[in-house]
Design a protein around this nucleic acid. Sequence first.
DNA 1: TATGAATGAGGCTTCATTCAT
DNA 2: AATGAATGAAGCCTCATTCAT
Lengths: 188, 188, 188, 188
Amino acid sequence: MPKIVDHEAQRELLLDACFRLFAEQGYAAATMRRIAVAAGVSTGTLYHYFPDKQAILAALLELLIRRDTARVRHDLPDDAPVPVRIHALFLFYRARAGYLRDLLRIAMEVHRHEPSPESRDQVRDGLRQYRDAMSDVLAVDPLVGAMAFSFILGSLTQGLLDPDAVDLGAQEAFVQEVWARLQAAADG
Amino acid sequence: MPKIVDHEAQRELLLDACFRLFAEQGYAAATMRRIAVAAGVSTGTLYHYFPDKQAILAALLELLIRRDTARVRHDLPDDAPVPVRIHALFLFYRARAGYLRDLLRIAMEVHRHEPSPESRDQVRDGLRQYRDAMSDVLAVDPLVGAMAFSFILGSLTQGLLDPDAVDLGAQEAFVQEVWARLQAAADG
Amino acid sequence: MPKIVDHEAQRELLLDACFRLFAEQGYAAATMRRIAVAAGVSTGTLYHYFPDKQAILAALLELLIRRDTARVRHDLPDDAPVPVRIHALFLFYRARAGYLRDLLRIAMEVHRHEPSPESRDQVRDGLRQYRDAMSDVLAVDPLVGAMAFSFILGSLTQGLLDPDAVDLGAQEAFVQEVWARLQAAADG
Amino acid sequence: MPKIVDHEAQRELLLDACFRLFAEQGYAAATMRRIAVAAGVSTGTLYHYFPDKQAILAALLELLIRRDTARVRHDLPDDAPVPVRIHALFLFYRARAGYLRDLLRIAMEVHRHEPSPESRDQVRDGLRQYRDAMSDVLAVDPLVGAMAFSFILGSLTQGLLDPDAVDLGAQEAFVQEVWARLQAAADG
DNA sequence: TATGAATGAGGCTTCATTCAT
DNA sequence: AATGAATGAAGCCTCATTCAT
């Protein structure tokens, strides 16, 4: 007489607890016991839902990427004047900076600790999806998209290592001004 | 009279071996035993030179930062037309991209695994020294310096997670062209 | 449903094995591996029941003190002529001399090796409970109780370091005679 | 051209440093490195004077026992009325209580950690010398001497484990009174 | 399904001792 | 005689994983 549980829903609940834990303490520091405690289950139960620790990570990344890419394209306007799009991008970024930093941190850690090709491919593909979404939203060619993405990524990294270093408001103003000047020059 | 060993020089030799190991496998995966093997000594000897594993890391970061900041300012021209400086910066970056990625990777990992305030402060201070050196070399104000630094940092991060994503040649061409256009607009 | 184990009972079984080992080889010589072997479990299991080695010691002392103080008051008569009580005390002591020596030895070692205030307080409190029990049994004031206790303690110590030195039969005879003479003098 | 050093004198200097260290931290906690630092020499030098750590302990015990037994008989009167002798004994004890506790502590630790027959015999013989000296000073038969010695030993032990428990002044008063009463009864 | 007891390899660290200088 | 660098076995503890219930 198995207890009736929605297996998928339970997996997502466990993964949410994992994300909070990984974000706070890192994947390496999150022992199976700690995960179990954080999720309110026993260690044995974790192994009912995931074959091992690495699988938790893979499932978590998959879940996050699936959720995020849907949201990115939904939240960002895909046709509008460029300054509006730039503003939307910065808005999106500022609203999620904390989450995005956590995500980047986890991605970096995975790349380190789980050097299986599958894990690395998963991280790389997730990264590309973000990058492509950004290129689409900005409606720029891949080179500029990659550069803008580098800038965002570096901004997250810098904010991670030196929390006071990044002033997004000033940065947006600067970008907008460069754009305006380039437009003026092209038009003039 | 004691066995003749230059304590400082020996420390640096050990740290060099550590850097290679950390870069390859990560700090967490570098066990004291592996470090000892890589350095060609016994584990006990490591503890003759460093009180614990964390101290090795701290000493390594200090050594690298000391070496690097001296080199950055030495290698990059501090008075020259802007396009020349931009080119010099990209040259510097391209020549050391592998090393810089390793360094960033270690810095991120430290930030995760050694959440002692000292470790974090050390990473943050090292980051700032790089950023300041870059601002000086480009002779730009701190805001633009921070943005350029974010771009470099993100480029490294992206190259780390997705090795084929970054084409530094094309990126330099793009930056040079933006600069040229802005100059033309300002002059015109 | 979990594997059925009575956590408390299992702890006591482990502690009993520890006492035997500590008594034989000393606390310092009792490595976690040896303890595990003696108890018939793995080292990991020890850490399932106790957070660290010191905690094993603390739990052991607590268990012994709890058991003993109950037994002391139970085994010794609390109203009877003084010579009877003296005899009962010596009987109690002789029957348990080996155990008491082991206990004292462990207590001394703890005091040395675990100089945390908690450990020392625990030892001191255990000592006081024994002393108070003895004062009660002999029905003497605290000063005489402390002196009698010192005598017993020293007898144990001497027996520990020089096993042939102590003849409890002769000692009891001597004490009884002193008591008789003092009584006779007081009555006469 | 060996440096001119009085080998014996240097040994004693080293042993004095050892005693201080053993008394403070215990024999087990006194690593060869710590001993070397406390004595102001290198670890290598220790091995010039003693073949190994255990030999240090043996030499220390031997030195202390040699010094002490000379001193005990010298400081205590060997003919005088009994109350005077009792008083002298308590004086002696009170003046050296700290030292005697340290000594006892070390003796107990040796007995535990160095269960070689030689070490144990050495401790036992030292103990006997103290006991015999006490019997002589009190001019009592061996049984009473052993009991008095047990009392002193237990008093030291109790003072070690529970520093506030022992009031030597009150104890001496009590002993003197018991003696006086016994005398009165015998004389009357 | 769910629990948590049990495992044992492996991590960091300590330390008595040896030996080149 | 003296130094301190070097060794490596062994200590305590952690943790992913398995399995009886």
